[in-house]
Amino acid sequence: MVFDLKLTVQSDTRYLAPLRQLVSAVARLTGRKRFPKRAVTACTLALIEAVDNAIFHAHDRDERLPVTIEMSVGKGAITMVVVDKGSGMGRPAIHAPELQATKGRGLFMMDKLMDGVEMRRVKGGHAVILTLNT
């Protein structure tokens, strides 16, 4: 593993901007070979979508509930894990929403951007595991 971090934030959208900056900072630290530019765009957006889901769907905007984010940059892959206190969505079918739909794009976008999107029950909550091959 080249780089590994774990942090916990409250369920508050004011953390979204710092999280975006964090992805860019990790990319700079690990270098273009491990974290190419296209990966910065994909990982930033997928991470924010996963955290949005945790804040709005899993936690219903209850700021007291924590969202834990793990990010690992290794040889050939970047992995991000977002853990919330919700019960998860089971294994929802991922499909393109109607063009004029105003909701329901988060999971679809994660799936389009990443090579792997996995959902799993974990102790005390639910995890979304996002993997991008580099």
């Binding site: 930033t44 957006l45 949005d52 004029q100």
Partner: peptide, 16 residues
């Protein structure tokens, strides 16, 4: 510099 799915949602709502 950045738009997420909620930002897209409000743009679509505005368009409608």
């Amino acid at each position: 510099s950045f738009v997420d799915s909620m930002g897209l949602g409000v743009l679509i709502s505005l368009l409608r």
